[in-house]
């Protein structure tokens, strides 16, 4: 099968490659670009562990072909930290609020939460829960993931993080 030439921007750097049309974006990212932050979880578009940011949308990279991402601007968890190397507010929030246990879902959670906060910089708890409904976590019960995103929203908005009363 003829390969296709693709060019895309990944975490700010332009990459070019020849891909088989059937190569899924997640396989391209992990195996060609060695970006193993996006994880392969369910492979059936349910779990969200493979989520990346693609042209301003949260996309499950197991459900799009690399050839379809030709020309796209992609950000993965590897491109999430601040330019000076410090952690992004979301990464810091997940650390401070214990938003992960095994960590398998975390790259997808953080890249999804990144887009959620771009679209709504001060989401309610309900909006956060609805907004991350495409990402499954089997450890935390989500409580601390929600708190981590609230922490990040507060930090990005320059206001002190206040825990909701129990």
């Amino acid at each position: 099968m003829a390969k296709s030439q693709v060019a895309m921007k990944v975490n700010g750097a332009t990459v070019e490659a020849l891909v088989e049309p059937r190569t899924l974006l997640i396989h391209f990212l992990r195996e060609e670009l060695r970006l193993t932050g996006p994880h392969i979880g369910c492979e059936t578009s349910h779990c969200g562990a493979c989520t990346v940011d693609l042209n301003g949308k949260s996309v499950k990279s197991c459900t799009i072909f690399a050839v379809q991402a030709n020309g796209a601007d992609i950000r993965t968890i590897e491109g999430m930290a601040n330019a000076d190397g410090t952690l992004h507010a979301l990464q810091e929030g997940f650390r401070e609020m214990h938003g992960l246990q095994c960590g398998f879902c975390t790259p997808g959670m953080i890249t999804r939460a990144y887009r959620l906060l771009q679209e709504n910089n001060n989401p309610s708890e309900e909006e956060i829960r609805f907004g991350i409904a495409g990402n499954l976590c089997r450890c935390t019960g989500y409580q601390n993931i929600v708190r981590a995103i609230q922490y990040a929203a507060a930090k990005l908005n320059g206001v002190p993080f206040q825990e909701a009363a129990e």
């Binding site: 578009s45 969200g48 949260s58 999804r112």
Partner: peptide, 9 residues
């Protein structure tokens, strides 16, 4: 319909 990621696509 589905979830946020699916609704983007």
């Amino acid at each position: 319909v589905a979830d946020p990621q699916v609704r983007y696509m």
